[in-house]
Design a protein around this nucleic acid. Structure first.
Length: 513
RNA sequence: GCCGCGUUCGUCUAUCGGUUAGGACACCUCCCUUUCACGGAGGGAAGAGGGGUUCGACUCCCCUACGCGGUACCA
């Protein structure tokens, strides 16, 4: 590798929400850029007018921000020297290169309409050709500048006939290129067809846009999904034909993220169908192509922490070696390398994602968690001081997986007990528990006695075995046989609060039969 | 169909010719806790199959099987 500055790009098309496969691609680009002190660019590939979805671009930008993998150049992140970064705005730039390829006999004009091509393909299929190619052997039978006379071509062009520019794929030639993840890969051009480079509306297809933009934007590494591998030889040939081979980016085709159950790659359309979120942020939009409202729950809305989500995502299809799994962004950056990216696809495992979140939740400072759930608590109509909320988080965080669980899981601590475990009450209730409590607490000045002392004294005073009294105290304070240690709950409630709750609960227990 | 890329416990993975094939998730058992968790200690669980190369293959090569991707004026 030369001294070339590392410049990578994440180039999604705004056709819907960003799914986790896309986020991972962005992440790996980001990690490589940061590792080498390079640039990470966001380029929007909106060359298909029909598939454009309102709001998708904004969603992509917000997602990257939430994930903490912000580009330092590109749409939504500030223009650098290579603006614009939206391909629709770069439209005028592509035609000249397509024409240049025609002039150098690497491409040609094709006048076939989409309907004609469709019919042609059907005819070919009827004749037993499974996937008809527009290629060196068939292009002579189709309407293009390699089959038509120069006059005819000139006439059609002047007349304003619609046309596309197709790459003139060599008939039988091996194209070999190096992939940072897969090593040397070879394709024979006889398997490739004359791909459209410039559409009739003057927009480039992905292929031309990739070659032109990555060259103009001085991209050093093209990191993208494995689904692009089959078209990589076309791209290599385009770089060569344009005389750009020397600055061609190094390729790295990432393994796919597969659906956890069956087969196939995780796709944008999977949404919530799989029983877990597959989008970073909740996505909602009307898709005019499918004429349907699309909804997908996000990791953020599900209560994931961005760092947990990223940590988890980074380990799908990549591992730096060794046994370490918990890594923050700095560690990911320093240990990242494309050579360590796997070749094989990885099935998505949501259980592991949850585990990561739980680990992060557990390790967060109580104050940070308190700040994060404060709004939810107040929205639910409760008021707790910051200190109290932090104490609450400390008590409950080991019992939660998500930030969202944290609020309801210990609701009995910040509000009255709403539901009692009557089965346990029926089984364990003893009248002495209340009698001894009334006797113990009579005349006590609760402002001078600490909650833990109160509880311990009462337990001793009752003369009951711990197995007889503890479950009842727990149900009295929490309503259920769950939660923090009894004394800790009492401490949280305070002597007065705990005493009031015990009194009230015991009175209720007496009525349960 | 054709082309390409893949294939280590159920899942994510370590291993870069020599290991009792290690870790994590999930699952099970036990300990801690007379709660639930957390934590700790154990357990079961893997090199797709067949040929080579080699003193020695999970590691290198070939074939087969299987999986995935591509085969659009979509990306």
């Amino acid at each position: 590798m030369s001294e070339r500055r590392v410049r990578v790009r994440f180039a999604p098309s705004p056709t819907g929400g960003l799914h986790i496969g896309g986020v991972r691609t962005a992440l790996f680009n980001y990690l490589l850029a940061k590792k080498h002190g390079g640039d990470f660019i966001l380029r929007i590939e909106d060359t298909d007018q029909n598939r454009f979805v309102e709001g998708a671009e904004k969603y992509i930008i917000e997602s990257l921000k939430w994930c903490g993998i912000e580009p330092n150049e590109g749409v939504g992140f500030g223009d650098g020297a290579h603006a614009p970064y939206r391909q629709s705005e770069r439209k005028p730039m592509y035609r000249q290169y397509a024409e240049q390829l025609v002039a150098s006999d690497h491409a040609y004009y094709a006048f076939d309409t989409e309907e004609e091509l469709e019919k042609w393909r059907e005819d070919m299929k009827a004749q037993g050709v499974p996937s008809p190619q527009y290629s060196a052997v068939t292009r002579q039978y189709l309407a293009n500048s390699t089959s038509l006379s120069a006059d005819e071509v000139k006439l059609r062009l002047e007349r304003g006939d619609k046309y596309v520019i197709r790459f003139k794929m060599p008939r039988n030639e091996d194209v070999k290129f190096h992939d940072l993840i897969r090593g040397w890969v070879t394709f024979n051009t006889s398997q490739l067809d004359d791909k459209v480079l410039l559409k009739h509306d003057g927009m480039p297809t992905y292929h031309l846009a990739h070659v032109v933009d990555d060259t103009l934007m001085e991209i050093s590494h093209a990191i993208r999904g494995e689904e692009w591998l089959p078209s990589a030889p076309l791209h290599v040939l385009c770089f060569r034909a344009l005389g750009w081979e020397a600055t061609m980016p190094q390729y790295a085709h990432l393994p796919l993220i597969l659906k956890p159950d069956g087969n196939g790659k995780l796709s944008k359309r999977d949404g919530d169908r799989l029983g877990f979120p597959s989008f970073p942020l909740t996505w909602k939009a009307f898709n005019k192509e499918t004429n349907q409202e699309e909804t997908a729950t996000g990791y953020r809305e599900s209560g994931f922490f961005p760092d947990a989500f990223i940590n988890f995502l980074s380990l799908i299809g990549w591992h730096p070696g060794g046994d370490k799994e918990m890594m923050d962004m700095d560690e990911l950056i320093s240990s990242f390398s494309l050579e360590k990216v796997h070749k094989g696809g990885a099935k998505f495992d949501y259980e592991k994602a949850k585990w990561f979140n739980q680990q992060y939740l557990k390790s967060k400072p109580n104050e940070e968690l308190a700040a994060a759930i404060k709004d939810k608590i107040t929205a639910a109509g409760f008021t707790l001081s910051d200190e109290k909320l932090a104490e609450y988080c400390g008590l409950m965080k080991e019992r939660s997986t998500f930030l969202n669980d944290l609020v309801p899981i210990g609701s009995f601590l910040y509000q009255d007990v709403l539901n009692y475990d009557n089965e346990t009450i029926k089984k364990k209730w003893k009248p002495e528990i209340k009698a001894k409590w009334d006797e113990y607490i009579a005349g006590k000045d609760l402002s001078t006695i600490s909650p833990d002392v109160m509880m311990n004294e009462y337990i001793a005073f009752s003369g009951l075995k711990t197995g007889e009294i503890m479950p009842m105290l727990r149900v009295a304070l929490a309503g259920v046989l769950q939660g923090p240690p009894v004394v800790d709950m009492a401490k949280f409630l305070g002597s007065k609060g705990a005493a009031e709750r015990l009194k009230k609960s015991f009175e209720y227990f007496e009525t349960v039969h």
